[in-house]
Design a protein around this nucleic acid. Structure first.
Length: 739
DNA sequence: AATAACGTTCCT
DNA sequence: AGGAACGTTATT
């Protein structure tokens, strides 16, 4: 009732709100500050004549995204606060796993001009749909039908990331950016692990991709020098050079669309030509609709933008925009496509090489070169390939090559919920896209792939559709590498959407991508992988935390070679579905840290539902190269009842007693363990083999390079086990169940 | 009317 | 700066 009254006057608002708040919180909080400054500008719909900075309309769940469709985890911070989970209910926040990735305007939202709701559903044409859908300005917060606006000398900038969000023509024209530029629907900014802002560096040279590629990775800790990294030179790398190259002489004119911009012509012509030059495309898709071309051009911007030095950074763009003409200029003047491609290729090559070679790191920053005493030797052993099993999938050329590139293209084209992009009522020189994604990452917004379902068939120019259905295409796409998929995503809007299907991205490999950028992270979230490899990356804690919270379906997480600072994100983030956790060679991960990783949430009160380990469902745990002792193993055997595969290779503190612990009566690991890797554990002796006899499910015991394990003992083990379970020596000191 | 939870303020 | 609290909105 209070709300009803004071929503009509902002000044009254202040007073009543403060009073009300005072009464409300007397018990829990110190007295609130009084006066206008302390007043809460409630997110009440204000009178529409407050046009320049009206109150923002609160958004609500889309109820369609993956997060919305989940059930509450019951484990996260916010769940535990909920009354239903026994909490006090003070925080009133959504389960962290259920935080909507595409919050929508409420049903009650209406156009400020005509007072009517969105009418896009009644229309067929996309242009009409756009003009009659409600658009909320992220600057002034006004909600209008674009069609109801009379402004003609400027146009709106659609924010592709958030449904029904743009910077309205008025604000855009007025050059407003302001503090409100953050835009609506960004509730996570304060609740979730911090800003990714610092991942961005100010733009040095517009479009200077080569310098971008040479940038110094930005992270909490400098990457460590890894002896092995320099030892793993990769063969020449694939790169966007493999893409058809645009030719400068190609100046085909693109089909003009109602809302097209002028300055995309070069890119578009070139790209179209590219496509028609390619016999593959020209045969397969002779008549594909090309309206999405300027999106492709944007993609290039995006790619460049993804490197910290590229693209306007800074929150809300206000700084950059006010400092000079740079952002505008950048948007206006595009590099000719060829130049762009070349720069991009160069940048990517360097990026890839940097990922590859340690020297690339060396020339950029002071490295924290650590005296790798104990671990150095083992690492050298590791480098010689796969004899120790498939330890290093990331060294496969294909994956190594594909990764950095494909991630730079994670944001190929931008599609609004209605598949209508850059819809600008009038022509204007500036590409009417939303701010570059790096800026949006700073706003912590990651939006899912387009909300509207992708078309079932490919639209052709003549208005018909291609005979082959999407699912058939999907089967074809299923044969492509991620790299190739990224190429496909540039073909057209439809392919772009199809290729973003998460079925095609169940495994994402960023192994050794030394600089994880916000763009990459958002690309990952959009694809919702089941398996994610971030090994040997410079990912930061905040990034990882942010990521995990948005990957509710993640089953496999590889973090080998990352810093403990980053990995510690797992202590606070919940990933109950995780089955495989790889934290090999994580610097600083010792017993104390293992305890943090494995211990139940500390703020659990007695009798509360969840005192279970956050990683209780892990079946495959890779701890190679860690300085952990029996203390950790005790925890592991207690907290991971499903643990089947345990890698303790290169753990110098592991000994027979450790094995005893894992296989002791009463432990779950005794029966759950099927494979254990103890290679290069020099304290393990023949005696351990006796302990393994009591493991009911053990199938593989890797004792290679254990100095104190003898071949004789292995043979004796086989002989003694032969009564019940036949074993064999697959290699020296590598025991394997034979059957 | 009840429930969920968005977005801002306040506290540490 | 990060997190807790809480008024208030949106939906059922």
């Amino acid at each position: 009732m209070f709300g009803l009254e004071f929503s009509f006057s902002s000044s009254l608002d202040c007073v009543t709100d403060a009073l009300f708040a005072f009464q409300q919180r007397a018990a829990n909080r110190p007295k609130p500050k009084m006066g206008p400054a302390a007043a809460t500008p409630a997110p009440v719909k204000l009178p529409s004549n407050r046009s320049s900075s009206g109150a923002r309309r609160r958004r609500t769940r889309c109820r369609k995204c993956e997060a919305c469709l989940r059930t509450e985890c019951g484990e996260c911070h916010f769940c535990k606060d909920m009354k239903k989970f026994g909490g006090p209910g003070r925080m009133k926040q959504s389960c962290i796993m259920r935080q909507c990735i595409a919050p929508v305007l409420p049903h009650t939202a209406v156009c400020v001009v005509c007072k009517e709701a969105g009418k896009e559903d009644t229309l067929e044409e996309e242009e009409d749909k756009f003009n009659f859908m409600l658009m909320e300005c992220s600057i002034c917060n006004e909600i209008v039908h674009p069609n109801c606006l009379k402004v003609s000398d400027a146009s709106g900038v659609v924010n592709d990331e958030l449904p029904n969000c743009w910077e309205c023509p008025k604000c855009n024209h007025a050059g407003k950016s302001g503090k409100q530029k953050r835009g609506p629907g960004f509730k996570y900014a304060s609740n979730l692990p911090g800003s990714l802002l610092r991942e961005q560096k100010p733009l040095k040279e517009e479009g200077d991709a080569s310098s971008a590629a040479k940038r110094r990775p930005d992270r909490e800790e400098t990457p460590r020098y890894r002896p092995e990294e320099s030892l793993h030179r990769q063969p020449p790398l694939l790169s966007p050079c493999n893409l058809p190259r645009p030719r400068p002489e190609d100046k085909l004119r693109k089909k003009r669309k109602l809302f097209d911009d002028d300055d995309d012509d070069d890119d578009l012509g070139v790209r179209k030509k590219e496509r028609s030059d390619d016999p593959y495309f020209s045969k397969l898709l002779p008549q594909i609709k090309t309206e999405e071309d300027d999106e492709d051009a944007y993609e290039d911007d995006q790619s460049l933008c993804s490197s910290p030095q590229a693209g306007p950074s800074s929150e809300g763009g206000s700084e950059t925009q006010e400092k000079g003409p740079r952002p505008k200029a950048r948007r206006k003047r595009r590099l000719p496509n060829r130049e762009l491609s070349r720069e991009l290729s160069k940048a990517l090559n360097q990026e890839i090489q940097k990922t590859d070679d340690c020297p690339a790191n060396e020339n950029r920053q002071p490295l924290k070169v650590e005296p790798e005493t104990e671990n150095e030797e083992p690492k050298r052993l590791f480098r010689n390939g796969t004899e120790l099993g498939d330890q290093r999938p990331h060294l496969k050329t294909k994956e190594m090559n594909g990764t950095p590139w494909e991630l730079r293209h994670f944001y190929p084209s931008q599609i609004t919920p209605l598949g209508f992009n850059r819809s600008t009522p009038t022509n204007r020189p500036v590409p009417p896209h939303s701010p570059p994604k790096c800026v949006q990452m700073e706003r912590h917004v990651i939006r899912p792939p387009p909300i509207s379902p992708p078309p079932d068939r490919l639209p052709l120019k003549d208005g018909k559709t291609h005979v082959i259905q999407r699912e058939v295409w999907m089967k074809v796409f299923g044969y492509l590498t991620h790299q190739e998929l990224c190429v496909c995503m540039r073909v057209c809007k439809t392919w772009n959407r199809w290729c973003c299907d998460k079925r095609l991205w169940t495994k994402i490999d960023l192994n050794r991508c030394t600089s994880i950028t916000p763009l990459m992270l958002s690309g990952v979230v959009r694809r919702q992988p089941v398996s994610l490899d971030l090994s040997w990356t410079n990912i930061s804690k905040k990034q990882l935390s942010w990521l995990i919270n948005r990957l509710p379906g993640l089953r496999v997480l590889k973090l080998s070679g990352c810093s403990w600072a980053a990995v510690s994100a797992l202590c606070t983030s919940s990933c109950p579905l995780l089955r495989t956790l790889d934290v090999q060679w994580v610097e600083g991960l010792k017993d104390a840290q293992m305890r943090d990783l494995l211990s139940p949430p500390t703020d659990n009160r007695p009798g509360q539902l969840d005192n279970r380990c956050k990683l209780r469902n892990v079946e495959d745990l890779r701890l190679a190269g860690l300085d952990i002792t029996d203390t950790s193993l005790r925890l592991i055997s207690r907290q991971m009842p499903l643990l089947s595969n345990l890698d303790l290779s290169y753990c110098n503190h592991i000994n027979d007693q450790s094995v005893n612990l894992l296989t002791a009566a009463g432990t779950t690991t005794r029966d759950s363990l099927t494979e254990i890797n103890l290679s290069v554990c020099n304290r393990v002796t023949d005696h351990s083999l006796n302990f393994f006899k009591r493991c009911g499910s053990i199938c593989q015991i890797d004792l290679r390079f254990c100095k104190q394990v003898t071949k004789t003992a292995c043979e004796r083990f086989i002989a003694e086990m032969s009564v019940s379970v036949p074993f064999r020596l697959k290699e020296e000191k590598l025991l394997e169940k034979s059957s």
